[in-house]
């Protein structure tokens, strides 16, 4: 036996005598395997990027998978027009650094072209409209595989999701008729007009994502760290004051120290009160929390018990 330290695919040091990988290294290896598998077997993959922490981790993993070559696929952003400005700045800088190709699919354009109609009322959101924009973009660009950063621990419909999730020519997910997935052998065979949604970080938990961001020193948008912001209370969630949300008279603005646990549209992503100003504090906060991230922050999941399943069947992320 040789006793020496080995530098493995992360920043951790370990003894080689055991041949064990820690959980982050295992998760990373699994994700990289899937990125490479898709790049080998599909003609026109793309990586869906929202600017949220999960898709930032995905971009990092993809970069590692093909280094020293550039990403062999473009980055797709479905832009609702209701983004946090910090997130858009971040997106553009990251894409430039990686010399990646960015494809933007605009929900505003879908509205202007009459493909979808804007929801009305104070709770109007563009969340559901994104599905049409996304499916149109898939068709326009002939994408046959789309990487997404969904995780099985996020939501109960996602707990049943495969790494390779088959979508028919309407982009629909059929949860009762999923392909069995065995070992690390993925079936990427599809017909004309069909595609696969690929979820390389399926097995990651929210805590894994944060620990990985810390270990890899991955940069994330500032909205994830505690900061002062004008917010108001709606349905038990703190929403940011923005031009995209109409407040009713009794929804009073207050200044609070908050951060975001998830980053989606400004109109439906709630903030949590927090003092966590750095990654170490965020990890402590996540370790101690008793509420799931979507439960705490996503109005879009509150519609019904099966809100996510229903949207996924239609072709949502």
């Amino acid at each position: 036996m040789v006793y020496k330290n080995l530098r493995i695919a992360g920043r951790n040091q370990m003894s080689i005598t055991t041949y064990e990988l820690n959980h982050l290294d295992q998760l990373e290896s699994e994700a990289i395997h899937i990125f490479r598998e898709v790049a080998s077997e599909f003609e026109r993959p793309c990586l869906m990027f929202s600017g949220g922490k999960d898709s930032i981790v995905m971009l990092h993993l993809a970069t590692k998978a093909f280094w020293p070559a550039r990403l062999p696929f473009p980055v797709l952003h479905v832009d609702t027009g209701h983004n946090f400005p910090e997130v858009l700045v971040f997106r553009d800088r990251r894409v430039k650094e990686l010399e990646a190709r960015l494809v933007v699919a605009s929900v505003q354009k879908s509205i202007d072209e009459g493909r979808v109609t804007e929801e009305k009322g104070p709770r109007a959101s563009r969340n559901r409209l994104q599905t049409t924009t996304l499916l149109d973009s898939i068709e326009e660009n002939n994408f046959d595989a789309l990487f997404g950063g969904a995780r099985r621990d996020e939501e109960k419909a996602r707990a049943k999701e495969r790494f390779y999730s088959f979508r028919d020519e309407f982009g629909q997910w059929d949860p009762k008729n999923q392909r069995p997935e065995l070992w690390n052998l993925y079936n990427g065979k599809i017909g004309q007009g069909e595609h696969i949604r690929v979820f390389p970080i399926s097995n990651w938990t929210e805590l894994d994502v944060w620990q990985y961001i810390e270990r890899e020193e991955i940069e994330i948008p500032s909205v994830y760290f505690a900061h002062e912001r004008d917010v108001f209370l709606r349905d038990g969630m703190l929403l940011a004051d923005s031009e995209f949300v109409k407040r009713s008279e009794d929804e009073e603005l207050v200044r609070r120290k908050i951060r975001y646990r998830t980053v989606g549209d400004m109109s439906c992503t709630g903030a949590v009160e927090s003092e966590a100003e750095n990654l170490k504090q965020i990890i402590e906060e996540i370790s101690a929390t008793r509420i799931t991230e979507r439960g705490a922050t996503r109005a879009d999941d509150r519609v019904s018990e099966a809100a996510m399943e229903d949207r996924k069947k239609e072709g949502y992320f």
């Binding site: 099985r152 621990d153 939501e155 109960k156 419909a157 996602r158 707990a159 049943k160 949860p175 009762k176 999923q178 399926s202 097995n203 938990t205 805590l207 018990e305 099966a306 399943e309 229903d310």
Partner: peptide, 24 residues
């Protein structure tokens, strides 16, 4: 009901598929 996430599973009270759960 924690593990049976799909609408059909809840309605029929059965588990249809493999569900993945995480704890530490």
């Amino acid at each position: 009901l924690l593990t049976d996430g799909l609408r059909a599973e809840r309605e029929q009270g059965i588990t249809i598929d493999v569900a993945y759960r995480y704890f530490a």
